[in-house]
Amino acid sequence: MRISTRKTTLGGLAALGVVALLAGCAPAPETGGASGGSSDSGKPAASDFLPCMVSDAGGFDDKSFNQLGLEGLTAAADKIGVKPITVQSSSDTDYAPNISNLVDQGCNLIVTVGFNLAAATKDAAAANPDVNFAIIDDSSIDAPNVKSLVFDTAQSAFLGGYAAASYSKTGVVGTFGGLPIPPVTIFMDGFVDGVKYFNEQKGKNVVVKGWDVASQNGTFTGGFEAGTDAKQAAQGLIDQNADVIMPVGGPIYKSAAEAVRDADKGIVLIGVDADVTQTDPDNADLFLTSVMKGIKPGVEDVTNAAAAGNFDKAPYVGTLENGGVALAPFHDYESKVDPGLAGELDKIKAGIIDGSIKVESPSSPK
């Protein structure tokens, strides 16, 4: 297991702050459709439009954000009536050549999945101004042909942290990540702050292992692949008596699930990106809930809009208010959580939306 001790100049930021949405952000995507992305007949423009996608190293079968991106692209392509081209990356050295390959195949829109593809996306967009790009989980590229799809998951993870603290029997919960990058640490920040808010409201002292918000230091596996490092990271939290664990980083949760089953102590997991109870039925019994972001409808929306000639660079920021982030249902654990928890979470969500509960991470979209 590798431990990262990344620090940020915003270390020491108060656990609760103000969420600021981007001025002029695109509206929330409509599941199954596009805002302004239809022809006069009500159907998306079609025929010669070619949508494409490059995964990050997690692959399209990660049961998480790569899979959700692919589902969004496929849904839009089916509606438009075209066949998309998708390319899976095995490592970071694949990103630039995979994008170049899609440009050479005549793709009109290339969706790149993940923060780690930012440099390759920026270079390709500059070299190919007639090709439109959309990138998930990065907002650093300022170009007329690049649209960012980013998500303030600190908000939904705050709800997840509160739920974790409420459910915990040991008074210890934990989280660990794949890499110390903003799309990962934003989940961890929100989770820790949600636990802190629970403690303040309930007079409790639930402890979080694996991440410190103030110093921005914590436990990371060094990548997004399932394997020994991820299992050891989860085991380290189990050894510290954590009975609710949130792995942040695509397939690494699969290794955490192995550690949980081996421990056989009634430990539960919290998923990220997708509702993992639904995307991975084989492990559904382990998930208390999931901290979700609307990658599928976001990708579907930008693809439909681009097909109709309505592509724009205005970033989309998913929040609790516009439905771009959310906490999944408790599914099989509905009868096992505190009877008042759902109502408490509804009130907290409303408070975050109206600003009376301040939630911010150093990694929140600005």
Rank of each mutant, 00 (worst) to 15 (best):
287 F>P: 13
287 F>H: 15
287 F>L: 15
287 F>N: 01
288 L>W: 07
288 L>V: 12
288 L>Q: 08
289 T>K: 15
289 T>F: 10
290 S>P: 09
290 S>L: 15
291 V>F: 07
291 V>D: 05
292 M>H: 03
292 M>R: 07
292 M>P: 10
293 K>V: 02
293 K>R: 11
294 G>N: 14
294 G>T: 13
295 I>C: 03
295 I>G: 06
295 I>R: 01
295 I>S: 00
296 K>C: 05
296 K>A: 15
297 P>E: 03
297 P>C: 06
298 G>L: 07
298 G>P: 11
299 V>I: 10
300 E>H: 01
300 E>C: 13
301 D>W: 03
301 D>S: 12
301 D>V: 04
302 V>F: 05
302 V>G: 01
304 N>M: 13
304 N>A: 05
304 N>F: 10
305 A>Y: 02
306 A>I: 11
306 A>C: 07
306 A>T: 09
307 A>P: 05
307 A>L: 11
308 A>C: 08
308 A>D: 12
308 A>R: 02
308 A>H: 01
308 A>W: 12
309 G>Y: 10
309 G>Q: 08
309 G>F: 12
310 N>E: 14
310 N>T: 07
310 N>D: 13
310 N>G: 05
311 F>R: 00
311 F>A: 01
311 F>P: 00
312 D>E: 00
313 K>R: 13
313 K>D: 04
313 K>H: 06
314 A>T: 10
314 A>R: 14
315 P>A: 08
315 P>W: 11
315 P>M: 14
316 Y>Q: 00
316 Y>I: 13
316 Y>H: 09
317 V>K: 06
317 V>Y: 01
317 V>G: 02
317 V>A: 13
318 G>R: 01
318 G>L: 00
318 G>F: 03
318 G>Y: 00
319 T>M: 05
319 T>D: 02
320 L>P: 08
320 L>R: 00
321 E>F: 10
321 E>H: 03
321 E>M: 07
321 E>V: 04
321 E>I: 09
322 N>P: 05
322 N>H: 13
322 N>F: 15
323 G>N: 13
323 G>D: 15
323 G>W: 03
323 G>T: 02
324 G>P: 13
324 G>D: 04
324 G>N: 07
325 V>Y: 12
325 V>I: 12
325 V>Q: 03
325 V>A: 09
325 V>L: 11
325 V>G: 13
325 V>R: 06
326 A>H: 03
327 L>G: 12
328 A>F: 02
328 A>N: 08
328 A>D: 02
328 A>E: 01
329 P>F: 08
329 P>C: 06
330 F>M: 06
330 F>G: 11
331 H>T: 12
331 H>V: 13
331 H>S: 09
331 H>K: 11
332 D>W: 12
332 D>V: 15
332 D>F: 13
332 D>G: 10
333 Y>I: 14
333 Y>E: 06
333 Y>G: 10
334 E>A: 11
334 E>Q: 02
335 S>D: 08
335 S>T: 11
335 S>Q: 08
